[in-house]
């Protein structure tokens, strides 16, 4: 037996938080086990969806989601940890079909010695993001930890909303179309450039934004023909596609040439040797639709300011269930999920 397995198999490493297979495995093995069953008709922990849906008994559901946010650096081009915390939770609710959040909670854990001015900036951007999303923070909690016990600041937000129809991330059938709501890789690329001080000058800005309004427009246009929603955050479009394919038991054929990528992100990812398909997004959705609803949903997305670059990028297949085949324009290959955070490479 390799000792390395013994040493590290029992410890959490960064890859367990990177949104890929390792994280799903950890959640599956440790966190979903042992809790009493959720009420009948609920979408609970075992679904490992973006949030939970609890039946209210009148046909409607209370949708709940929670998300913790740590990001280095806390301020980056296009946003900061405050905007991220509000947008992340609003978007997770929207990915369940709940586009009108009733309210958010916010818990702040902050390190001793943290600059008050930075807290003020974070607070101001949370307020602005709440206004954009049409919601507010209704309760909160603050803890301070000793110097060195935490790196700066961590935020947790929880959101609640009522939905009449809950949209899952597992409803795909062969023939369904997949739509992304805009350019991919913007958030991860901007944060990576700032984190590793790559000195890249250009329009690298995070796309972090609440997109519940955009999703509302898509749901109105697609009706029951809109069958799945997923936000391609950590692990990028690749992880979101794999998770959808696996949960729905379909294959996915992705047309790489149709995937919208900003020029700056494309250039940076060439330079750093990172595939935009594995880079995180914080203001985009991956939408699965029945073929006859595709055009209506696409048109509704494109009519919305946040969905101008929306595109149909893939089709679900009966072959290679659980896998994603990438058509590069030159040939086809399997798309792989990233393990851990993407890092700039030299070879």
């Amino acid at each position: 037996m390799n000792l390395r397995l013994d040493l590290l198999g029992e410890r959490v490493s960064m890859k367990h938080g990177a949104g890929g297979r390792a994280m799903r495995q950890l959640i599956g093995e440790v966190f979903t086990d042992g809790f009493p069953k959720a009420p009948a008709g609920a979408i609970g922990l075992d679904a490992m969806d973006d949030g939970a849906a609890l039946p209210l008994g009148d046909g409607r559901f209370l949708v709940v989601t929670t998300d913790s946010h740590v990001v280095l650096p806390a301020f980056f081009p296009g946003g900061d940890i405050g905007r991220l915390a509000v947008s992340g939770t609003v978007n997770d609710l929207a990915m369940m079909g709940a586009t009108e959040p009733l309210g958010l909670t916010c818990a702040v854990v902050v390190e001793e010695g943290y600059p008050r001015a930075d807290l003020d900036r974070i607070h101001a951007s949370m307020v602005a993001a709440c206004v954009e999303a049409g919601t507010t923070v209704v309760t909160g909690d603050t803890k301070v930890m000793g110097k060195g016990q935490l790196d700066g600041i961590a935020l947790n937000t929880t959101g609640v909303a009522i939905a009449t129809r809950v949209v899952r991330d597992c409803g795909l059938q062969p023939g369904d179309r997949l739509i992304v709501t805009g350019t991919i890789g913007d958030h991860g690329c901007a944060v990576m450039a700032a984190r590793h001080k790559l000195d890249l000058a250009g329009d690298l800005r995070s796309d972090v934004a609440p997109i519940n309004g955009l999703i509302r427009a898509a749901l109105a246009a697609g009706g029951d023909g809109l069958v799945t929603l997923k936000d391609p955050t950590r692990g990028g479009l690749s992880s979101a596609l794999h998770e959808m394919a696996h949960k729905s038991g379909v294959g996915v054929l992705l047309d790489e040439t149709a995937v919208p990528v900003n020029a700056a992100v494309r250039a940076a990812s060439e330079l750093l040797g990172i595939d935009p398909l594995v880079i995180a997004n914080e203001g985009k959705a991956l939408i699965g639709v029945r073929p006859d609803a595709a055009e209506a949903v696409l048109a509704a997305l494109r009519a919305h300011p946040q969905g101008r670059d929306a595109a149909i990028v893939g089709t679900c297949t009966a072959e290679r269930r659980g896998q994603v085949v990438l058509d590069t324009g030159f040939g086809r290959r399997l798309l792989v999920e990233i393990e851990g955070e993407p890092l700039p490479r030299i070879c």
Binding site: D275, L326, T328, G329, F330, G331, R332, R333, C347
Partner: peptide
């Protein structure tokens, strides 16, 4: 990397 990225093995 290039062979894999562009799916050239199929060719």
């Amino acid at each position: 990397q290039a062979i894999a990225r562009y799916g050239l093995r199929a060719a």
